[in-house]
Simulated assay, not measured.
Amino acid sequence: MLKSKRLATLPIPDLTAEFAVLDSQQAGGEYDAFTFGSWSSHVLANGSGSAKDTAFRPHDEAITPTELGGRLPGIMRLVTDHFATENLQWVRVFALQDGILAPHVDFLEFDEPGVRLQVPLRTTTEALHSEDDLVYHLRRGEVWQIHTTVPHSARSGSGPGRLSLCLDFSGTGFAPEDVIRDAVPTEQDIHIVDRQPPSAEELEKLLSCGDGMTPSTLRSAFRPFAAMHFERRASARDTFDWYVRAAERSGDPRLAEKAAAFRTYCIEQRAYKEVFDW
């Protein structure tokens, strides 16, 4: 069963001009270890008002728009018109184009996970999310509470980059539905993607990439493992198990150790602002 929840659907205005502003921003950021392809986290509001303050953390400050947030009044108005902001700590837009995220667990660095809502602003049917062994599509305007404490991922195709509004709220003592205002009825079924298990031949082809794996290719070699999770029915944890098995086939125990360390970093344990050393 999908643990993430679709809470509502919002009417999204024409934000074409503001999408162009986001598309012009430099890619990259605080979480490069998780990303393959083009992925960025654009901070529109946080506790400091500084666009350089990009590493997520809980805070007690009043939320303040960044310079980028000031250039995106339509998106910021979408936030203030449709969400109660008393517990709101971060407003970001995640941009993903021809990219994929390593399956990961959020908030491993913190004692309390908080509440994360996402609203796709621009998307295509090629833009997918995953949660454990399920893959699903978030439609434009749907408000989702993302279940962040199980391994999850996202993938986008080569067309226009997916832009998703991400709102992080502090605490867990409130119903996420209560912070949403003026939603429209949600009539469509949740879009779950049907996938078949990988065949023995497909799995062997994937694992065989470990035969020629080297320290310089270890990072780039992970992407097809993450892609298999979206294309065939498998859990996010299978992604890492396969990756470690492939690294073991390289004959270099250091590569298998590094692959296992990447699994730990993504879904088991990491420190605040810890950077994974490939």
Rank of each mutant, 00 (worst) to 15 (best):
A260M: 10
R245Y: 07
D241T: 15
E248Y: 12
V93K: 02
D238H: 14
S208M: 14
S158E: 04
S130Y: 06
A259Q: 02
E201P: 01
L101S: 11
V135W: 01
G210Y: 04
A175E: 08
D277H: 14
E18K: 01
A200E: 15
D23N: 15
A20H: 07
H152Q: 01
S38D: 10
I267S: 02
R195Y: 00
T64R: 15
Q97I: 00
I180V: 10
P65H: 03
C166L: 09
P253R: 11
L165C: 07
P103N: 04
V179N: 04
R263C: 09
D168S: 15
I190N: 10
D168R: 03
K52P: 00
L218E: 04
F83L: 01
R122T: 04
L10T: 01
Y136M: 00
G161Q: 01
F107G: 06
M76C: 07
Y265I: 12
A260H: 03
A20V: 10
A84G: 06
H129I: 00
V93M: 03
A51H: 09
R232E: 05
A236I: 08
T80V: 02
T54L: 09
R6H: 08
E187H: 13
M76Y: 02
R162H: 05
L255W: 03
T64V: 14
T239Q: 00
V150Q: 12
G141H: 10
T172I: 13
Q118S: 13
E274T: 08
P198E: 02
D238V: 10
R77Y: 05
K5F: 00
D111M: 12
D178V: 09
T66M: 06
D277F: 11
G47P: 06
F240W: 12
H229R: 07
V184L: 09
D277I: 14
R122W: 12
A127H: 12
L10P: 08
L72Y: 03
I190V: 12
T9N: 08
I180N: 03
L134A: 13
A8M: 11
